[in-house]
Simulated assay, not measured.
Amino acid sequence: MPQPPSPLDAVVFDMDGVLTDTETIWDEVRRSLAAADGLPWPDGASEAMLGMSTPEWSQYMAATVGVRGDAREVAERVIDEMARRYHEHLPTLPGAVEAVTRLAARWPLGLASSSPRRLIDASLDALGIAACFRATVSTEEVARGKPAPDGYARVCELLGADPARTVAIEDSSNGLRSASAAGMIVVAVPHQAFPPAPDALAVTAAQVRTLDDVTPDLLEALAPPR
């Protein structure tokens, strides 16, 4: 029997920290570059870079942390090591594949990630869910990374979706702020290693413990009436 029309247009996932458990790997790799160059890790650097686009975090690493090379060289060093680590093992958060397939059966899906395109494509292919997404955007493909709304706004544009009727599923402070700034319905699935700040959680419509809690019934209950 056909499903009744939904009050939602689409659902957009973040990737790192929501589908793949890679936020800690990014942190380890960046810290290892600083350590290899004999540099201390600045307080707050890990949190500051969550959600930044590749040009933004590589410039931060070069200018603020002080690692060797310019932003382009720093990005290349980090992404090469991330790709090597992914090839060895891509950790997936519990329920990630199931959540994507469950929601893809009901709505068009998008993805807005701070990862570079190379790692987005490799991750979705490795998880076997690339075909579930109608639009994917890396923040290196828009003007500004998270917490700016650019990545989420672009995914909604590609999906032909009204942001006010589109759910964003995020974990980080900057990701939550980004989706909210784009005018979306924001659901937080906080990552234990990098819990969101109270002000970021304040913009969410719902907070859940795991992706198993992200059900069609929950998301439709958050949608404005048609």
Score class of each variant (00 low, 15 high):
Pro196Glu: 00
Gly38Met: 07
Ser113His: 10
Ser178Phe: 01
Ala36Met: 09
Glu47Gln: 13
Met82Asn: 14
Pro195Ser: 02
Ala164Gln: 11
Ser180Asp: 10
Ser6Glu: 10
Arg177Leu: 09
Pro40Gly: 14
Ser114Gly: 12
Arg118Ser: 14
Ala197Val: 13
Cys156Gln: 02
Val187Cys: 05
Ala96Arg: 01
Phe194Gln: 03
Ala143Leu: 07
Arg209Ile: 10
Val18Gly: 00
Asp70Met: 08
Trp41Leu: 14
Leu90Val: 09
Leu93Gln: 10
Trp26Val: 08
Thr22Ser: 08
Gly69Ala: 09
Ala35Gly: 11
Ser138Arg: 01
Leu211Pro: 03
Ala104Lys: 09
Pro147Lys: 03
Val167Tyr: 00
Ala188Leu: 01
His87Pro: 10
Trp41Thr: 15
Ala104Asp: 06
Pro55Asn: 09
Leu176Gly: 01
Ala223Asn: 05
Ser114Glu: 06
His87Leu: 14
Ser138Asp: 09
Thr54Ser: 12
Arg209Lys: 11
Ala193His: 12
Asp9Thr: 07
Pro216Phe: 12
Tyr60Val: 03
Ala206Cys: 06
Leu124Arg: 03
Met49Asp: 13
Gly145Ile: 00
Pro94Met: 11
His87Gln: 14
Thr204Gln: 01
Leu201Trp: 04
Ala45Lys: 15
Trp41Phe: 08
Ser53Cys: 12
Ala200Cys: 03
Asp14Pro: 03
Thr92Asp: 14
Ser113Met: 03
Asp150Leu: 01
Asp162Gly: 09
Glu56Gln: 13
Val18Met: 08
Gly183His: 12
Ser178Ala: 08
Leu119Val: 11
Glu73Cys: 10
Trp107Gly: 00
Leu119Gln: 11
Ala75Ile: 13
Val11Leu: 04
Tyr86Phe: 15
Ala126Thr: 13
Ala182Leu: 03
Thr204Cys: 15
Val29Gly: 07
Val203Pro: 02
Arg117Thr: 13
Arg209Cys: 15
Glu56Trp: 04
Thr215Lys: 14
Ile185Lys: 00
Ile120Trp: 06
Val97Ile: 12
Val203Phe: 00
Gly51Thr: 02
Ile120Phe: 10
Ala34Cys: 14
Pro190Val: 02
Asp171Gly: 03
Gly151Ser: 04
Thr54Cys: 09
